[in-house]
Nucleic acid binder design. Structure first.
Lengths: 347, 347
DNA sequence: CTGAAAGCGCTAACAC
DNA sequence: GTGTTAGCGCTTTCAG
């Protein structure tokens, strides 16, 4: 029968060592996974630890090792845009899985104003995190650089806006995925394809537009400026953009929306104007959000591996934290993950 | 000009005290907000701290105070259901705001399997968190009790499933909100209202059904069993449930869906069957998710203050952590937040 | 009101 | 392989 340890003072390395009949140092070596310990010592320490349900005191360890054992997941968003999208939960989930598997904890940080910023800077400078991943950064935020200068490895989600800032990042292949969408539209018969783009200040949107262009070009189909209309990743903007498209003299017969939300808006507009999908107009989205499977007909879209993106971000930053040399190295070890077309009913 | 402190060894209490010309003890008193310090000492310490950009070493502090300065945000979900809903990000955001305002950090924890469970138990037992809030608990999970028994204050999101488990919780007034929905339907003219319920194992769904019943009763309108159909909070289930409703001999002229997702599914089904909304059938949802504003017409729904729920959870658990006596007290200081009807175009 | 001193529990040299 | 020892930076009695 196991000893109830509920309310007592927690076991310390000292007590474990005593029970195991070894020194504190040896007990410590076993529990922190050092190799140079005899088999006998190892098992008796492990036994003792189990009996006392020993848990290492992270504070004490941190004090001497100067590593906190935690990774910051930073959401930097001025407005609450990031909360509407299906992205953020997946990234969080993936990052958490990886961080947790590494035996570290994920500290969630949201940065909305100047005060938050300063607090995070202090927090990081104080050595409270071993690494940080950044999500949904707007424009050219200086925060990552600040942290990096304070010695904290940083990885960004999404290709950084300015080419000059050499930060490691993890991103989906937006360009390639959009080309896939273009091919699908054309191969299914669209001859006058159009696209609803993302906001100008988001690089993912730009990449998708570029990829769409390339994809059409590869099929020898033109994309006149009149068939490129701007959206902002919301359902409403997809709706409005599509109405604009429908007012044109020569209606498009295919729409690539730069994300699924806008594609849903597009479908609403098409339906309300009595345009059949995919009969008269084909539609392709991007993301493969849960929403995409729930429309009627189901939305053909480009899937990006959201959770995997989160995992890779965490993995990468963990590597950098483990090996500071790599972090300072020339090569920026970014990762671009493949996207794939998910064909449903709108093409 | 401020001294660059970027790469140097971080300032310690010792160095601050030296610069300020006081003892380490006094410096510590100032920086941890004790009152019994002379004005002169206080200002010189504060100055010194600023100059050295001192940040207290949380590890060292924790080691002696035995408090970690962090709060766990625990997502316990067997499947990924919790990730589709608009709920979880709002709760997280609210909780984070409050935790952060209290100068503590939010540690994000996901529990999916037995191993995660054990890890969290150890983590908590090791004193790594001062408190924990639980989100999207299924059925009657033993985890909260385990933590509480380990001395960690716990607050749940949503009324606990079993009445017997006396945990503090924070919840929206599901019952009252659903009654509002019933009133709206009837007051707008529905005489044969129906409802699409949530899954049987989720108390929020039960509460909403009960509230809907009460609301109809208050208006003297009947709800025959044939007009109560089961869903599971997904768009697809709302779609399917509504199709079932439409196959009945006497079609309903109003639908209350227990969440917005199902309401969206319901609207899809109605449209596809050529039924006009709100002309022939009125629809009311629940949650006021972003989606609700994006349908055509806009979805009338019951708003619950999601972010506020998160805030209150954090607030409550922080209070309990600050005052252990309260935590052990008789009274369970749960909080139920009001809901309100948001009228859009579907009624 | 302030200072001196004693640890909190752990790791990392350094001997043996 | 293993034990001894010296702190990591902070809070907290306890004197003064």
């Amino acid at each position: 029968m196991v000893t109830k340890q509920v309310r007592d003072a927690p076991a310390t390395l000292e007590s474990v060592a005593a029970l195991a009949g070894v020194s504190r140092a040896t007990a410590g070596r076993v529990l922190s996974g050092a190799t140079n310990v005899s088999e006998g010592a190892r098992t008796s320490v492990l036994d003792a630890a189990r009996q006392l349900s020993y848990v290492t005191n992270q504070a004490a360890r941190s004090l001497v090792t100067r590593r906190s054992g935690s990774v910051a997941f930073v959401v930097a968003e001025a407005e609450d845009r990031a909360f509407g999208d299906p992205f953020f939960p997946g990234l969080l989930r993936g990052a958490h899985a990886e961080v947790s598997a590494a035996g570290k904890q994920l500290v969630f940080v949201m940065v909305t104003d100047e005060q938050d910023r300063r607090q995070l800077e202090r927090f990081a400078a104080g050595g409270h995190v071993d690494a940080a991943v950044f999500v949904s950064l707007h424009g050219d935020d200086p925060l990552p650089r600040t942290l990096r200068d304070a010695g904290v490895p940083v990885v960004l989600s999404g290709r950084p806006y300015r080419a000059g800032t050499r930060f490691p990042f993890v991103d989906a292949d937006n360009e390639g995925g959009a080309a896939l969408a273009a091919h699908e539209l054309v191969d299914r018969g669209s001859r006058r394809p159009a696209t609803v783009t993302g906001p100008a200040d988001m690089i993912a949107g730009e990449d998708r537009l570029a990829g769409f262009r390339r994809g059409l070009q590869e099929r020898g189909v033109a994309l006149p400026p009149s068939r490129v209309v701007a959206g902002d990743f919301t359902i409403q903007s997809g709706y409005a953009a599509t109405e604009r498209l429908l007012r044109q003299r020569y209606r498009p017969d295919g729409v690539f929306a730069a994300n699924d939300q806008m594609a849903v808006g597009a479908m609403q507009a098409l339906r309300e104007h009595g345009v059949s999908v995919p009969g008269e107009v084909r539609v392709v989205g991007f993301d493969d959000a849960p929403l995409a499977a729930a429309t009627h007909p189901g939305l053909t879209t480009v899937r990006q591996p959201v959770e995997q993106l989160g995992r890779e971000m965490a993995q990468l930053v963990l590597e950098l934290a483990a090996d500071p040399a790599a972090a300072r190295g020339r090569r920026v070890p970014s990762r671009v993950l493949p996207t794939e077309l998910v064909r449903r009913g709108t093409t």
